[in-house]
Design a protein around this nucleic acid. Sequence first.
DNA 1: TCACATTGAGTAAACGTTTACAATACCTTT
DNA 2: AAAGGTATTGTAAACGTTTACTCAATGTGA
Lengths: 337, 337
Amino acid sequence: MGVTIKDIAKRANVSIATVSRALSGKNKFNSEKTIKKIQALAKEMGYRKNTAAVELVTRSSKVLAVIVSATKTNFANPIIDGIHEEAYKHDLNVIISYAGEKEPQRQYEAIKTIIERSVKGILLLALDLSESSYKLLSESEIPYIFLSISNNRNIPFIASNDYLIGYQATNYLIGQGHKNIALAGLDTNSYIGKQRIAGYRKALIENKLVLRPEWITNGLFTYDDGLKTMKYFGKNPKITAVIACSDLVGLGIANQAVSLGLHVPTDLSIITIDGTNLCNLVRPTLTSLTQDFHQMGILGTKYLIGNDKNTHYSKFIDVKIEKRKSDCPLTRNNKLS
Amino acid sequence: MGVTIKDIAKRANVSIATVSRALSGKNKFNSEKTIKKIQALAKEMGYRKNTAAVELVTRSSKVLAVIVSATKTNFANPIIDGIHEEAYKHDLNVIISYAGEKEPQRQYEAIKTIIERSVKGILLLALDLSESSYKLLSESEIPYIFLSISNNRNIPFIASNDYLIGYQATNYLIGQGHKNIALAGLDTNSYIGKQRIAGYRKALIENKLVLRPEWITNGLFTYDDGLKTMKYFGKNPKITAVIACSDLVGLGIANQAVSLGLHVPTDLSIITIDGTNLCNLVRPTLTSLTQDFHQMGILGTKYLIGNDKNTHYSKFIDVKIEKRKSDCPLTRNNKLS
DNA sequence: TCACATTGAGTAAACGTTTACAATACCTTT
DNA sequence: AAAGGTATTGTAAACGTTTACTCAATGTGA
């Protein structure tokens, strides 16, 4: 069907080896003249390299796989952007698969197909793998790394330190004078959730504040979790500040608070974890504990390319607090001050 | 390195053809017994199919390519979701490349790599291809389709009818009593832009309203374009309603209007084109002329799979107006009524 | 028992590259 | 002009599958 190097070789009166060398940039082995001639011919004849053949014989591919949790997180985008950015620099393609968080079967299949492509590396986004899926992955000899989710099991990851996130966010609000601080919308059973709660507790304890379990609301980091949380807290919450465990949770809380007749931030201060662009778009803008997702994508990709497989690499990325308009110091203005 | 069908054949004391047949589901040629035996053995030995080899010999692949404009559009996600959803049903992988809108070189390269993979089909998202890139694409024999951007050049696409979009949005506002209606944030040089303007003009003329060129603001559908537009219109705009050419533009306008001391919708009504989820998240919620992006992804994928290459398929998808809180009838409340 | 269909399994070619190694052509240098 | 070196090109195997074709074994009916 298509033009192959064989066809070019025939037309140019050289061997296929020569064509291959001229076309794949192994220039040091061929003369300028032949290279030029062959490249011109290839262009003229409309030659297209057959990637499958190349991958077969070289036993390596130029593709990076990303497996994304199907759960809609709005921070997947900056991570994927970072991955694409870095991959592009190294002439790598990116293939993206969705895998349900709660569908072990689909997870397993996604990983299987990826492995069969013998990709260069696998990035797992916000994914909590089932035991069998992880076994499949780790036995594949393909380097992989988890992004945005850390672990204590010696599995490579790049993420923020969720313990510190919980600690810093809480401390920030305490620093503003708040004493009744809620923690909203997080999956209390997940590793992330537990870490954040631990940091939150630590900060409370250090400041002689008491942790009230009913001020921690369970959820899956969604907008609806924010709404639900605020409906649950009600029109006269004892709390004066909330740590929202994602921007969407934060926005849900803010919107519902306003619906209840509360003013943000004077009646209720909100700090939100993630700090995606959404925080700047809404009113009031949301003060955030910002994670550098873009950087996660870049570093994860770099790691896979560098391929330091031996070192069980894992890295926490710095977070920072970005002050916006959804929080303020506790003053006499606050309903409960 | 890995286990191949050869290894399995040896262990099972059969030929590789038998193994291949047993493993690739061409069951009718083998006996139950051997199939079971071989499958068990494959599992035990940790066999992984080599996709490159399969693609080489069958000269076809199970991947769909998506090329996305690097310009950040917030509707790319629902489209990609639709593509993934449909692709998954047909056991297809999805590979995503970014191509700069204004970087012809990168565009060209993206398409070239894709073609070299001999993918099953190519979906082009919100992409305006350069002449040479399009030539490359169309000569490749691989089916392709443009999504979200229509054309009048007999190139397959699935999109909304931008002429109708302009017409309907304008008519909607006229129906609310508005007479001074702006059109904001669109690329006036693009096909989309021209179509929307034509529809806008038609609706104005039909209602004996005059089109004022200075009420059409040029842009690239970004949030900043919305801000800029509203700064330009100023604190006492003669206009009472705006058609924002993307949700981000709409949000920029709304936020800037509020900053200027205007009230949305009583001082300024906004209808926004796209209707992504963002419209529900912000306050006031944005009335939108909603496009079904998810459906575009699904239909585009179906088209490529169906592979009706001969018919120069193109399709407009229905849009609908979703009333929210960013618009109201022109009444005595309006500053300029 | 024989001819013949049916079923299951094997043989070998093909897909389009890359690359180790062998072979040749071309220069220098003496 | 011969020897030696270097630069360029050719030969052929290999990568791991699929599949058309062939062959052997088994079953069937007269």
